[in-house]
Design a protein around this nucleic acid. Structure first.
Lengths: 139, 139
DNA sequence: GATTATGTAATACTCCTTGTTACATTAATG
DNA sequence: CATTAATGTAACAAGGAGTATTACATAATC
């Protein structure tokens, strides 16, 4: 799925929000705990808001809040809410089409990728945000 | 797993080798059908040979041959034989350790990653190289 | 209206991955 | 035994995906 860290950031942000149910967290504040830039957080929150996990508010005292209880947030759904996350890369350059394998391998690999992704999300849906919070406590 | 295309290359190469059981295939030849550089293929074959999927021979008429029948080559095992393939990236910069979540999230995410990876390999092990060849025929 | 936040576009930068060159090593063959 | 053709491997170049940054328009609160 890429050396893409959006999923890690998403789980982190959601966990922090779950710990602060009474106040909206601003993107600059969240960016500090994750150690990244506020804009990166905002782009992430857009995906998470679109999927219904969080709500964002503008203006003073604005920021992001969790919309669902941690028990109802499944990591597989979090993953699928994020754009631009593929499991494995395909041929960067088109394979030789005269090769009986090469001319079909991309299609076959797409099917394999779909299957893998579904299995992955199914497994990650066994883990809730509440589970993540538990694990964070038990240091 | 990275925009890493090693898995795609590996499946392609193994499929080509399966189609030519009687002759060893050289890395320049394989590189052509995959459309990459011979050295990339050789590095890949090292991993595949180490896992016992192929055998390589030096000298004239050398190259790579399949050691196992396509039915016995499971894609999950192929994936795990490749080095440098992670499912998702972690925080590129260390999260704030004073954050109760941040100081533990990396460990928790590692556990999640392990679990995800095992589930993925299990699913991919339902697919054999013979299945891939079948799908390539049915154009 | 001033302040503080998000939304978003455009751009810069970094690092991973792939690709390439080069050469030592090994094996077959005439 | 020299020649040829292949792998093994190191070192380096190039490319691109992804992250970070800057800037500014928009919105909401006081």
């Amino acid at each position: 799925m890429s050396q893409n860290c959006r999923f890690a950031f998403a789980v982190h942000v959601l966990a922090v929000l779950a710990k602060r149910p009474d106040e909206a967290c601003s993107s600059p504040w969240l960016a500090q705990t994750v150690n990244t830039n506020p804009v990166v957080i905002r782009r992430l929150l857009l995906d998470l808001a679109h999927a219904g996990f969080v709500r964002t508010e503008r203006g003073p005292h604005g920021g992001a809040r969790l919309r669902l209880s941690p028990e109802r947030i499944l990591l597989g759904n979090v993953l699928s809410s994020l754009e631009g996350t593929t499991l494995f890369g395909m041929h960067p350059r088109r394979p030789l089409s005269s090769c009986p394998v090469g001319c079909r391998i991309e299609t076959v690999l797409d099917e394999v990728h779909d299957r893998a992704r579904k299995a992955l999300e199914k497994e990650l849906n066994q883990i809730t945000l509440a589970d993540v919070l538990d694990r964070c406590q038990k240091a």
